[in-house]
Design a protein around this nucleic acid. Structure first.
Lengths: 256, 256
DNA sequence: CGGTACCTTGAGGTTACTCAAATCCAGTGG
DNA sequence: CCACTGGATTTGAGTAACCTCAAGGTACCG
């Protein structure tokens, strides 16, 4: 399910990080030439994964740390009851699997939302490099603490904001991340289905759908299935902020 | 507000981690004798903080990594709108401030819920040790990835579960953590107020209060203000699990 | 061209929120 | 030691947001 024979030609397979089109987005950029050389030696540029292919499964021992090269990946976890909990979507340049560093086991799953390519650094080699490179340690510590911050942000979104705000924030987040990758931030295709979005935002499919429709009615966006066009970014950003207004006591209570 | 002159005698001030009553809970336990020696040299055992004192403020540059020695600490963040977001409660042996490692700035605040003591490792020294000790790096990576897992857990609790389940999970979590510290897991005092609990769980004060009352009516717990007694742990654990039952497709959708 | 999965829309129900008021409690001063 | 006071907590009533259930529409794949 995870492994499979090389099926297709991958066109111009880069052999060095320096030549990768994602270099400016990748953590490899932050490493010394020497360290990068070692990285180039151990790094495996995987054959494309097809939509639905798993990069790894929860509980599986961590065999590698993965960087997305193209496509998009959904990260999810299983609750005790076996419910899927979508924890994030990964775009090219983003790193997956760091949260398994401590346990040396993947706490969650990663599945391709579309045909995607990845770079994988075998866990063994990764640990060896970690031992030798303070710089790499720094970078990993940074990525990990960014992940904490991100999850915390999600916590705010999912737990305390109303549906409209959650959806607005989601759209803006996708837009911003795509912009960083030189893609049109005002029109993009959502590679995940409504179910995934709903799950990610802690809502139901119906609520997501209704909210998108409402936003379209209000002239904020245009939706045609998975294709989203941002019409009125400013109003959308307003939606993403307000909703809950201030009180006075203490740091203010949260509530919805 | 953070600093203040030594006001009280701290009784037997331990001078070495080995002698600390928390040693078995502290990450220092995992380090080599040699490393621990260095730790002992740089570590500052702070004067007690009074209830309401801040250990650090959000945005403040990270001056130290902190381990709780006694009492309890509330971690919180400020949303863009200035709302307080309670992100966790820290008990003796737990480490605060790792999420600032990357930015070298505290993303959030830490405030004492009661009179508390801490150990602080100056950030500078901490970094120096990090550079020299692969073991320490491992430990920090582990603590950080545990923090990711924890926040993710909270995400599930806050975003998707009903009020009763959230409260049940909260009580059990406190109980479990107190038990690790050799305190009675069936009767304890909540050092935070209802507002903090509500905020942490993404609920309102009234809902937390009502839920606790309902649990008392049902004979699961007994509540007298901040003092909680767990009467029927088994049923409480049931509450904490069920609530959302399975479906069939895919990994099952979340919803509430 | 049919089927299946995905998405949208509608109607009704439920949970948790809001607003409001009563009660409890700790700390203060008499 | 006890009354007093402000904040914390509990409780009640009504409401709004979101969920559930249900049906209809749409798009993609074979």
């Amino acid at each position: 399910m995870a492994e499979k024979p090389p099926l297709r030609e991958v066109g111009q397979q880069e052999t060095r990080c320096e030549n990768c089109s994602l270099f400016s987005l990748c953590f490899a950029q932050e490493m010394s030439a020497e360290e990068r050389e070692q990285l180039d030696r151990v790094l495996k540029r995987q054959q494309p994964a097809e939509r639905g292919d798993h990069l790894f499964h929860g509980g599986q021992s961590l065999k590698s740390v993965t960087v997305v090269r193209s496509g998009s990946i959904k990260g999810y976890h299983l609750s005790q009851e076996g419910d899927e909990i979508v924890s994030g979507f990964y775009l090219p340049g983003e790193v997956i699997g760091l949260d398994g560093l401590s346990s040396e086991t993947h706490p969650g799953f990663a599945v391709a939302l579309e045909d995607s390519r990845t770079c994988e650094i075998p866990f063994k080699d990764f640990l060896a490099m970690l031992d030798k490179s303070p710089k790499l340690n720094q970078v990993m510590l940074r990525l990990l603490s960014e992940e904490v911050a991100e999850t915390r942000e999600l916590l705010l979104v999912v737990g305390r904001l109303d549906a409209r705000t959650r959806v607005a924030l989601f759209l803006l987040s996708m837009s911003r991340r795509l912009a960083r990758r030189k893609q049109n931030p005002d029109q993009f295709r959502l590679t995940m289905d409504r179910r995934d979005i709903a799950n990610y935002l802690g809502l139901t499919i119906e609520t997501v759908s209704r909210t998108l429709s409402a936003m379209q009615r209000d002239g904020l966006i245009e939706v045609q299935g998975k294709l989203v066009t941002i019409i009125d970014r400013e109003s959308l950003q307003e939606q993403a902020q307000t909703t809950i207004e201030a009180e006075e006591p203490r740091g203010k209570s949260a509530s919805r």
